[in-house]
Design a protein around this nucleic acid. Sequence first.
DNA 1: TTGTACGCGTTATCAT
DNA 2: ATGATAACGCGTACAA
Lengths: 347, 347
Amino acid sequence: MDRHRKPTLDTVASAVGVSRATVSNAYNRPDQLSAALRERILETAASLGYAGPDPVARSLATRHSATVGVMLDRPLSSDPAVSIVLDGLASTVDGHDHGLVLMPGGVDGGPRPETVARAQADVVVAYSLPDHAPALDVVRARGLPLVVIDQPVLPDTARVEVDDVGGARLAATHLRDLGHTRFGVLAFGLHRDGATGPVPTDRLPDAAFRVTRDRLTGYLDVIGEAPVWECAGSRRDLGRAGARELLSRTPRPTALLCASDELAFGALQAARDLGLRVPTDVSVVGFDDVPEAGHAEPPLTTVRQPLAEKGRRAGELALRLLTGARPGEPARLPVSLVDRHSAGVLT
Amino acid sequence: MDRHRKPTLDTVASAVGVSRATVSNAYNRPDQLSAALRERILETAASLGYAGPDPVARSLATRHSATVGVMLDRPLSSDPAVSIVLDGLASTVDGHDHGLVLMPGGVDGGPRPETVARAQADVVVAYSLPDHAPALDVVRARGLPLVVIDQPVLPDTARVEVDDVGGARLAATHLRDLGHTRFGVLAFGLHRDGATGPVPTDRLPDAAFRVTRDRLTGYLDVIGEAPVWECAGSRRDLGRAGARELLSRTPRPTALLCASDELAFGALQAARDLGLRVPTDVSVVGFDDVPEAGHAEPPLTTVRQPLAEKGRRAGELALRLLTGARPGEPARLPVSLVDRHSAGVLT
DNA sequence: TTGTACGCGTTATCAT
DNA sequence: ATGATAACGCGTACAA
C-alpha cells in the first residue's frame, strides 16, 4: 500500500471529488467556496490524515518561506541579554506568522557560511557580528534583505542601534563625578581570536566588533588612559578573572567599567574574592541592565538599554523589508544610567 | 529588464550552454563532470549573481528540508539551563548540515499550533512541554518524527530523559542526612495557568509538567509532608519571593529544596533579605548545576544534570529518526549530587 | 551529459 | 457565486 506516502492536496481533492484548487481554497480562502463544501473537504482531509498544505511546497509556490533567520556571533549559552533580545525578536515575527531559524555563531564570530547558504529564510537579522563576517557575504550573495543589530553601517541594510558610545560615557562620567581617577576596564573581545588578557592600548582602534569599539571609545574618551582587560566572551567567570587581575595591580583601580552586566557580576565576585567591599573599596558599573542587575549584591549600577525592544524592533524591520520597503532610517534606542549601589563616592 | 528576477539554475545553464542538470551537478556532485566545466559553470554563476540552488526548491525536490524544529514551553529569556541545552542541540544539528527552527512557548506552555503547522522541519524536538500541549498534536497530525526531552513516554517517540525523581531524592536525602527535619520546597509551575503561590498537597499528583511532578515526588518521598511553593517560571525573582514566604513561616524551615538553580539563587537572596545565613541558619539545594552555581554566594549545593549533553543527545536522536530509524530506547542521562557549601548540618 | 518526469502547492483565468 | 483548468515556482534524480 501507499499508506506510507503522505496525502497531498490531490489526494483530498479526488477523495472529495473536487479539484485541487478548491481544496487549496478551503484552507487559504474560505470565502471562495461554500461553507458546506469547505466543511466536507476539511472533514475528509482529517479522515485521510491530511494535515494541511505542505509548508515547503507552499513556500516554493509563493516564493517566500515566511521565515526570518537570525545570525549570532556566538553560541547561545552565556549572557541572558542575548536571550532577551532573541525572545523579543521571536515573539514579534511569530505574531506575524513568521518562523525563526537560528544560526548561532561558532568560534570565529558568526555562523558557518554553509549554514547561511542553505537556510530557508526570506530575510535575515545579524546580531553583533564582527565587521567582516563571512556569513554576511553569503547573505549578500543570496540577495536576502538584511537587518543588523549592533553593527556598523552597511549599504542597503536596515539597522537597530543603541548609542554605545554615549552609554559608555554615561557610565564613565558618573564614576568620574564621584571622584574616581584610577580606572580599570573590562572589555569584550576585540578580535575573532578569542583572546583574553590585557590589551596594549595601540591595538584598540581596529577592533572587529563595533560594540567593543564603541563602549571602549566612550570609556576612554572620558577617563583617558586606563588598563583594559579583554574578555573573549560576555561571561561571568571571565569577568571575575579579569577583574581579579585588574584589582591586584598597584596602584589598585578604585573603579571598574564593565562592558556588560555579566562581566560586572564577575567583577563583583572578584572584589569579594579579594576582600574588597563594593562600593566602599571599589566601584563597579555594568552595561545592559539585565533583570538580575537589580538583585545583585550590591544592586548593580549600570547602563540600561532596552533589550527586548531591540529584538522587537529588529523583527519589525525585518518584516517591513519583506514588504519591499527600503531600509530607511535606523531604529535608535535610548540608553540611560541606572544608578543603584555598586558605584559610590571615592573615600 | 528582469534584473529583478533572481537567476536560477536555468539562467546559468543557458548562459554556459549546458543543461540545467549539469549545473545542478556542478553544485551537488562535482564528480559527475569535468573539473574544467565545473569551474566554468561556477564562474558564470558568480558573474550572474547566482548564489547556488534555492534551498526551498531543493527541499521540495528532495522531500526534506534539512531542518529540525525545537518547541519550548516558554519564552527564551530566563533560565540559562535552557540556553545550554539549546546550544548543544543547535551545534549538533548544524554539524550535520541541518538548520534549526525555533518555536518558543507562549503563555500556555508551548508554541502556538499555527506556528508548528507551518514550520519547515523534518523532525521536531519538544523540550519540557506540558503533557497535552496542542503543539504536540500538530506534530502528530503532520506525521513528523518527534523527540521529547523531559517529557513522559509518548507512543512512537524518541526520548532523552534524566532521572528527576532520583535526582530529587539525592537532594532530599542529603539534607535529611545532615539532620534537617523541617523543609520547604520551591517548585515549578504545576499547571499551565501561570499560578504562583502555596500548593495544597492534594493538587500535586496531576501536575501537567513531568519535570515538576517528578522532582516533587522525589523530594516528598524522602521528606514526607512539607510546604510547597509553586513558581510560575524558573526565575530568580520568583524564587526569591517564594523563599521569602516559606522562610517567614513559623516554625521556619531549616532547609529549602529548589527545583532549579535559578530558583535556588533566588532563595539565597531571600535568605540574605531576611538576615539569615546560609548554610548556618538555612540550607539551600538547587537542581541543574548551571555554571554560575559554583560561583554563587555561597557556592550552591545542587543536583547536576548534563545540560549540554542533553541537547546533543536530542540532536542525535532527531538526526537518527531522519534516517528512518525507529525511536528505540530513550537516552538516559545521569544525575549526581554536587556537594558545595549551601547545605550544612543542622546546628 | 542531457531529457524529463516528478515534488506539492498557488493563483490567475475561464466556465458554468 | 462556485468551481475547474492549467501555468508556473526551482530544483533533483534516473534513465537514456
